[in-house]
Each structure stands twice: as structure tokens, then as C-alpha cells.
Amino acid sequence: MIVLSHVTKKYGDITALKRFTVHIRKGDFAFVVGPSGAGKSTLIRLLHCQERPTEGTIMVDGVNLARMPRKQIPSLRRKVGVVFQDFKLLQGRTAYQNVSFALEVTGAPGAYIKRRVPQVLNMVGLSDRADIRPHKLSGGEQQRVALARAIVNSPSIVLADEPTGNLDRDNAWHVMQILESLNKRGVTVVVATHDWPIVDAMKKRVIEIENGRLIRDDLEGGYSQDVASSRAVSR
């Protein structure tokens, strides 16, 4: 489903990822962890073609993103939903409009949009907040709007870059629960994070990056190799 082989990404002199190889299967739930500057965000950006790799191949759904023509980027982004730490919502539009926008972009028929958007808002628990603009929503609500927008096109992959970075505990868990329920329905989920309590508690696949290199890939891992297991035990 997602296969990175020997992927190197350079920004000028800085090498953000070095000969990075990883395979994420359909239906996986993977955390990407590592210290700040390790290359987590770079990985997420490569996966929805916001950046292109300097070297190597990135196969997503059988397409090599390294060579994919620009023209196909929009259709990739409709198959891959993304959420960020800073939500990236349109301030002038309501929660409903922020979500419906992602469907309008695809040219979806109006009747379908009217049916689909409430469905997704319901899924993230925001049915009663549909007509409110982002600046009047809490951080957790904004992130759930962003999540609703990311999944409204029924993507097979959802990427999240520090989705809980700006949220309090309750909201952070709420967002993670939504991601997990999506994953249960077959969506592949990749979450870059340094939110160690969540990573430790969820017992998912953990991919650890340091200095742009893969240093650990555990199937039911903790936030860090040693401390995590002891933490898990002491809990």
C-alpha cells in the first residue's frame, strides 16, 4: 500500500531523510516518532506529494510519487486525507463549509454533498457545531473539523502530523479514538507525533526516526524502546 524504498530527501545542504525504507500495509495503524527535526513531517509531506523525494521511490496504491505527473497530484490528495497540528481551516467558512469544500473541489454532486457532510460531522461528533466558524470552536473541535474534512472523500489513507500537538488530553484522546475507529473500518492511518502517553497506551506499530534514518520499527511498540516498556509495566 505504502512502500518507501531508499528514500532520500534533501533541503539544500540539510538531509531530512536518508535512504529511508519502510513498508506500511493496507489497514495498518502506524505511529512515526522521533526527536524534533528527525524527519517526521518530511515523511508525511512526501506521502501526499507536498514534496518530492530527492532519491528513491515512494509507492502509494501502486503509483510512484517520485515520478507521478503533477496533473495527478489532485487525485492523489483526494485519496489521502491529511490533518496538521495547526488544523489549516478556512477561517471565513463554517465547520460545515470547511468540510463540504473538500467535496466541492472534486466536483461531487450537490445532493451527495448534502448527504455526506452531516454524516462525517456526526462521525467526529460535531453535528451540533456545523454552522460555527473555526475561531469560535475549541482546538479539539477545530481538529475534528479538519479530520472530518480529511475523511469526507472516503480516503484509503489518512495522514496526521502532530494532530494532538495543540490539544488538551481529552481532546487528544477524542481525536485518536476517531482515527482508531477509521482504522477499524480499513483506513490506513499514519500519525507523526511526540505525544508519548498516547503512543504508549495505544500499542500500535511504531516507526522511529532519528536524523532522517529509520532506527526502530516495532509492531506493538512504545514511544521509546527501553523507557516505554518499563513505563508500560509500571503503569
Binding site: 487525485s75 492523489l76 483526494r78 478556512l90 474534512r149
Partner: peptide, 16 residues
């Protein structure tokens, strides 16, 4: 530019 950025993110074509 932010609005444009977001449009690209959700898969809007350049013409759109």
C-alpha cells in the same frame, strides 16, 4: 495564500 494552500491540500485542481 493560505486559502490557496488549503485548496491544494484537499485536492483542488489548479484550474479550480
Amino acid at each position: 495564500r493560505e486559502q490557496i494552500e488549503i485548496m491544494k491540500l484537499v485536492g483542488a485542481t489548479p484550474a479550480f
